[in-house]
Write a protein that binds this DNA or RNA. Structure first.
Lengths: 195, 195
DNA sequence: CAAAAAAATGAATCACGATTAAGAAAACAC
DNA sequence: GTGTTTTCTTAATCGTGATTCATTTTTTTG
């Protein structure tokens, strides 16, 4: 008897960075689970402990918290081939301040922290994969801090929209405003200038 | 004949996260070099390609760039047991916008990217070590973005000074102001309030 | 120790973007 | 397809923190 394993986008992604044997692929696929999410579904709600990491295979998710002024503050988006989770809660086991929610109908590949630790033993190449992915994430975060500190909010908007033109179409403007750190009203003002 | 190897703080740090044999320690120590830096010494100057990573064993370094208003914008400090480098330039091989400079008389353990890649082959546990260290760095960067977006500049100052009281004594106030994203003048104003 | 450089403070004015409060337009649901 | 929720826009006022310029204090160096 032959078993068919659907080629998972996750292992494809990993293979871009490290070698995986067919057996490795099976071990990984057995450790993860695929979730299909309707728009607005929550993968993590505030005050819950975050137990899993999510790899976006389709769609778009957001990570946000409620700030003191009771507004949603988005700190991260994740589209295809990006990981998203609250690492802080995941590592510490403490309740999260964050929510993770599907912005579009999406599909994620999820893995619990526990399973991931087992995978690091079973498939040691994953240490390298996650080191590289983590480095990229850190570099992106550093660059973001650099932009925050060196551009006005208006400059940040034009910069972002030139870097990721397609993204503007995918998320509501008020979410992008939140991610960029300003109000939807201000965003309207900006857009009204240069049509 | 017996050779004495000075116990390097770097391998001590690595051992907190992964196991190293005596041989591993030797291999690592052979790959790195120790640099003693007088205050204000540069490890990286703008427009140069960054070739090395630095582990601070003593003292304090800063990473900064010159923004459009021609002010120094500090994006990172590194004290004992932290790594500092311009990952972006290091990975891409492109000239850096950043400077890395000693804020105090310091000692760093440096390793070139090339040597580090060799080390990953020779001592595979380092993949795990750097994965973990990288994750911590990313989590810290994420938290910083969270603070930037959820506190006023004044709140950020008080928050920072309560989190790292000792640090206030170590760096000039204008550098902390830069790191926190505001002007030295504003910092004076804040401090004048609550004395 | 004196001179020079670096760092911190102070006050007055100004600008960017928040806030508030509407209303208009789009998207969604039944 | 029309009623409802969500998203986007417009305009007036307000506040935080930047800017500018000057002075004082501290640190460094010869």
């Amino acid at each position: 008897m032959q078993t068919f394993t659907m080629p998972l986008p996750l292992t494809d992604h990993i293979k871009k960075f490290v070698d995986l044997s067919a057996a490795d692929v099976d071990v990984i696929n057995a450790a993860v689970s695929v979730k299909t999410l309707k728009k607005k579904t929550f993968l993590l709600e505030p005050d819950h402990v975050c137990k899993e990491l999510y790899f976006v295979s389709k769609g778009c998710l957001r990570l946000y918290f409620i700030n003191k002024k009771l507004n949603e503050q988005i700190t991260q988006f994740a589209i295809e081939n990006w990981w998203i989770t609250d690492h802080d809660s995941l590592e510490s086991g403490k309740p999260s301040k964050y929510a993770i929610q599907a912005v579009e109908n999406s599909e994620v590949i999820s893995i619990t922290k526990t399973k991931l630790e087992e995978l690091f033993i079973a498939v040691p190449q994953l240490e390298r994969y996650f080191r590289i992915v983590q480095l990229r994430a850190f570099t992106a975060a550093q660059k973001r801090i650099e932009f925050i500190y060196s551009m006005t909010e208006e400059e940040r908007y034009w910069h972002f929209s030139s870097l990721f033109p397609g993204f503007l179409q995918r998320v509501p403007q008020y979410m992008l405003a939140s991610y960029l750190g300003f109000t939807p009203q201000f965003m309207s003002k900006i857009r009204a200038k240069k049509t």
